[in-house]
């Protein structure tokens, strides 16, 4: 087996204990439910028989290891319980709502790169001049703009004042879908882009000063060929790592903007369920969103190992 494949496998093996801890945490959530957990899960309007059914199904009368084993069995079979408000199975809800979240996540990552990478180059190439200094000061400020507030302000300015784009809900059709995604993606992208820009600027700065670039220049590499072979290849890995590490907050950003723009995604489902104490939905979504973040982080590391042969993990 090649060294890189081995590295990738080792990184994936590191994921297992984290996933197990996530399962344990999500399982343990019910232990900290105030009052009678079975009653909370069954919902406020449940009858005594329904509460009894929940207690029996989730194994509240059984010892904890047995209950955890049956929880694991349910999860591996894709059974994540039933919403106590809509009586919809949680797995079905997730399948229904995942496309919106996926679209926002992909769109947001694309926006982040499209804004962040050129900005980072600009900062690196003009380092030390007044305009680059001013730009980095603005970037630091932008990082501290809360996504929910930015989304709200964008929806007022672009959506309501100019009336160009939808500000809430999904418009029908493919064009409508894309139009509905523009403002949410822009919101997340704007908040996340400064991180990428900073990272790109730092790595480009280091690379421009390095010996191999001087050598390449002396060998008359310039323009696109210098950019592609020497600069981009070396600047990309740290940026990918950063983006993968930011996956958590990017996803949280998606959670936030879905609710601001009233889009039916996983994040708005989580927030609605949280606000209405719909425990099974909270549990199921935490598990799925959490596992997604863990896997994206690992995938980012593996991608870096493929992009950069110097990668070592200890």
């Amino acid at each position: 087996m090649s060294g890189r494949a081995q590295l990738a496998l080792r990184r994936l093996a590191q994921v297992l204990p984290v996933l197990l801890l996530l399962l344990l945490t999500v399982f343990a959530l019910r232990a900290i439910l105030p009052g009678d957990p079975a009653r909370s899960i069954a919902g406020p309007r449940a009858t005594e028989a329904q509460v009894e059914e929940v207690r029996d199904r989730l194994g509240f009368d059984e010892p904890l290891p047995v209950a955890f084993a049956s929880f694991l069995e349910d999860v591996t079979q894709g059974q994540l319980g039933v919403s106590n408000r809509t009586h919809q199975p949680v797995a079905e809800l997730i399948v229904q709502r995942a496309p919106v979240t996926l679209s926002i996540a992909i769109g947001a990552v694309a926006t982040t790169f499209l804004i962040g990478i050129p900005l980072g180059w600009y900062l690196a190439l003009r380092r030390g001049r007044a305009d680059a200094d001013a730009a980095s000061a603005v970037l630091i400020a932008v990082v501290n703009v809360p996504a929910f507030w930015l989304g709200l302000m964008l929806s007022i300015l672009v959506g309501l004042r100019w009336g160009v784009l939808p500000v809430g809900g999904l418009e029908p059709g493919v064009t409508g879908w894309i139009r509905s995604m523009i403002l949410p993606c822009l919101t997340v992208g704007l908040v996340a882009a400064p991180w990428v820009a900073r990272s790109v600027a730092t790595s480009i700065g280091g690379i421009l000063a390095s010996d191999f670039v001087t050598t390449a220049r002396s060998l008359r590499f310039s323009g696109w060929s210098l950019f592609l072979h020497h600069l981009l290849r070396n600047a990309l890995p740290p940026t990918v790592t950063l983006l993968a590490l930011q996956a958590g907050s990017l996803l949280f950003g998606a959670v936030v903007v879905e609710q601001v723009f009233a889009l039916p995604g996983l994040g708005s489902a989580l927030l609605e369920a949280a606000a209405s104490r719909d425990f099974a939905v909270v549990q199921g979504l935490t598990l799925v969103l959490g596992a997604a973040i863990i896997l994206v982080n690992a995938a980012g590391d593996v991608a870096v190992a493929v992009l950069d042969p110097r990668t070592r993990w200890d």
Binding site: P34, L251, T286, G290
Partner: peptide
């Protein structure tokens, strides 16, 4: 620490607040 650092903090934060009230 290695295991905990991989945990999705923001999502768990929402879940914890949701459960605790």
């Amino acid at each position: 620490l290695d295991v905990f650092q991989g945990m999705p903090a923001y999502v768990l934060l929402v879940a914890l607040v949701a459960v605790l009230g």
